[in-house]
Simulated assay, not measured.
Amino acid sequence: MTGTNGKTSTADFIRQLWALQKEESASIGTLGIRATTGDIAASHTTPPPTLLAKYLHQLKETGVDHIALEASSHGLVQNRLKGLHFEAVGFTSFSRDHLDYHKTEENYLSAKLTLFKELRKENAPICASTACGKQIIDALQKIADTTKTALRTTGKDGNFFNLIETRPLPHGQELIVSFKGQKEVSLHLPIPGIFQAQNALLAASLACPKDVTDAQAYRILNLLPQLKPIPGRAQLAGKTPNGASVYIDYAHTPDAIERIIESLRPHLGPNGKLSIVFGAGGNRDTGKRPLMGKAANLADIAIVTDDNPRFENPETIRKDVISGCEKAIEVAGRKEAILYGLAQLNEGDILLIAGKGHEKGQEIQGETLPFDDLLIAQQVGQLIEGDC
């Protein structure tokens, strides 16, 4: 699957759905290689061809025969997947990102569409979340029509899995879903956020065989309550002693920040406030920085700090972000910003620490220094009852 946000969650959800059906399976992507037969460390979202061939051979040798793979735009442009043909392909979401590399959104989208035009088996299902928007759905429908292939859409008003309603719960959310307009079922997804509901349904559509029966589709839907949270994706780090909640998320685009804030807001307690700690990466698309700041205005408190400054001056990056963020409170140093955010919390509040998710290091002047948002939040905040 490809998309701006949601690839990692969707890939891992597919792996989990296969595993729940007793299939030896793996996901390859930003989290490395997670497999039922044992994990393998990897450093690329989409590995280079020689490494990917090595990983696929290793997985096959251990008995894995079901693989969900994240296709990044860089990987697609650089032909890292050339020679592979997929049994099903999916599109998670689309918004501005990586324009430092692709230069225009048109080039970025063209890279993504390569997966659907060139890298799928004949008649392989095309799946897409309706969260992608009309432009993407129309482009995929054109490809599907040209190749006489079905387009499976999932999410709100989806033609395959229709997400009719979501209701926040203390531990996750309730989903009301139907398959091809048939009977509605109520499911408990033990993960918060409508975007994760969308990712889970996209994963379910990709896990359905080409000629899926009604019974098979509902059987897969009924596995969703057994899904586990993904590291660094809407992950509950825990609760503070005074009853606030702390979440870790990888959101590092304007769209992702907007989605995670909107998804967590229903989980606030009475009179609760939602705070976000975030920054922008150095030596990357500078144009999205003020847009990230603007998206963070949806929070009640926006704390702007450092992400991975790489070779840039962190203060310059913060200023770029703050230019779009009316509510910005600037706190230099990511650990200091997390400490500040934790200190503001009261019962029913939520602190969202965004941008780095599962990462265990911070890139500064050519070095990757140990840094773990989750570990720092848990230790300093004395958190309990997390998803860890």
Rank of each mutant, 00 (worst) to 15 (best):
T4N: 12
D300I: 08
D387W: 00
G155A: 03
G181Y: 12
Q362R: 13
R167P: 00
E367A: 15
Q58G: 01
G133E: 08
G63E: 05
L224A: 02
E165A: 13
G348H: 10
P266C: 12
T37V: 10
T62Q: 09
I301Y: 00
Y218E: 03
Y250P: 02
L201A: 00
I301T: 15
I14H: 01
N162M: 05
I176F: 03
G272Q: 12
E165V: 05
I350C: 02
K180T: 11
G238S: 07
S205V: 09
R259Y: 11
L56Y: 04
I364P: 12
G381N: 03
I376E: 01
T30L: 04
R96C: 02
R233C: 00
Y101F: 15
L236C: 07
Q135R: 15
Q216M: 10
L223W: 07
K103G: 00
E165T: 13
L175P: 11
E122R: 10
S186G: 09
K54H: 14
K22G: 07
S129R: 03
A237S: 03
D307A: 08
A280R: 10
P168S: 06
A150K: 14
F160R: 10
G272R: 13
I194S: 10
G83M: 06
Y340S: 02
A71F: 07
G324W: 13
G32N: 05
H171A: 13
E385F: 01
N123G: 07
A296N: 08
V177C: 04
L383I: 05
E262H: 12
H66F: 14
Q362N: 06
L151F: 12
G361Y: 15
C127S: 13
M1Y: 11
G172M: 03
F161W: 06
G6K: 11
P168F: 09
V64I: 10
G272A: 09
L119I: 05
Q58H: 06
K327A: 07
S72M: 06
Y218V: 03
K134A: 11
S323I: 09
